[in-house]
Computed example of a mutant assay.
Amino acid sequence: MLLLLLLQVSATCLWLGRSEVVTSFQGSCPQFFFRQTPPNQALEPQNPAWICQHYGNQYYFATLYDRTRRIPVYSAYVYNPTSCPRTDPWMIEPQLVGLNYNKSMEKTRTFLKEGNVTLKQLGDSQAILKDYKSLKGLHRGHLNPCGHHNDSSSMNATFTLTNIVPQDENLNIGAWKNYEQQTMKNKTQGCKTTYVVVGAVPGNNYISNGRVNKPSYIWSSACCEVDNNHRKAWAVIAENDKNGVTLLTLGGLENRLTQLYRGNPVSLFDSACPRQ
Rank of each mutant, 00 (worst) to 15 (best):
R18I: 11
R18D: 00
R18H: 07
S19M: 14
E20Q: 15
E20R: 14
E20P: 03
V21T: 09
V22D: 02
V22A: 04
T23I: 14
S24L: 02
S24I: 04
F25C: 13
Q26T: 15
Q26M: 09
C29G: 06
C29S: 08
C29P: 13
Q31A: 08
Q31I: 06
Q31C: 00
F33A: 02
F33W: 03
F34H: 14
F34S: 07
R35V: 01
R35G: 00
T37F: 00
T37H: 01
T37G: 00
P38D: 00
P38G: 01
P38Q: 02
P38V: 06
P39V: 09
N40L: 02
N40A: 03
Q41C: 04
Q41I: 09
E44W: 14
E44F: 14
P45C: 08
Q46P: 00
Q46Y: 00
N47W: 00
N47T: 09
N47K: 13
N47Y: 05
P48F: 06
A49L: 04
W50V: 05
W50R: 14
W50K: 14
I51L: 05
I51F: 05
C52H: 06
C52N: 05
H54I: 06
Y55N: 10
Y55M: 08
Y55K: 11
Y55H: 15
N57G: 15
Y59G: 00
Y59T: 14
Y60V: 07
A62E: 13
A62Y: 13
T63Q: 08
Y65D: 05
D66A: 03
T68L: 12
R69E: 04
R70P: 01
I71C: 10
V73N: 07
Y74E: 11
S75Q: 10
S75G: 12
S75P: 08
S75A: 15
S75R: 13
Y77D: 12
Y77F: 15
Y77E: 13
Y77G: 04
Y77K: 12
